[in-house]
């Protein structure tokens, strides 16, 4: 377990998450991709804190802020899913073309 291996793992999680966020049609699956990316970001932040940051407490705080961002992303995403479903009874990104030019 070194900084390089931890960052490689974080990069893999971010890559998989990016694939999911770009490829999934269902809103909730798309959000799962975003969450997986944030998962990698949090792991990278903790790895830097432990190996490069000399245990500066602000490094852990950054991870907590990312967790808050994740909770916000999740709740706003679900609220938008509910709003879109009310308006269009749709649950895939393809069904929304209102802002398409």
């Amino acid at each position: 377990m070194t900084l390089a291996t931890l960052l490689l793992l974080a990069a893999a999680l971010i890559g998989i998450g990016l694939y999911g966020a770009l490829s999934q049609q269902s809103f909730v699956m798309l959000m799962m991709g975003l969450e997986l990316m944030l998962n990698g970001v949090m792991l990278a932040a903790v790895a830097f804190w432990a190996y490069s940051g000399a245990g500066a407490p602000a490094g852990q705080l950054l991870t907590i802020i990312v967790m808050a961002v994740m909770a916000i992303e999740m709740t706003m995403g679900f609220a938008l899913v509910v709003a879109v479903f009310r308006g269009k009874q749709a649950d895939t990104t393809e069904s929304l073309s209102g802002l398409k030019h």
Binding site: L7, I14, G15
Partner: peptide, 11 residues
């Protein structure tokens, strides 16, 4: 591409 770029940074 994201994995390769970030992984290259890590290495």
């Amino acid at each position: 591409a994201g994995f390769v770029v970030l992984g290259a940074m890590a290495l």
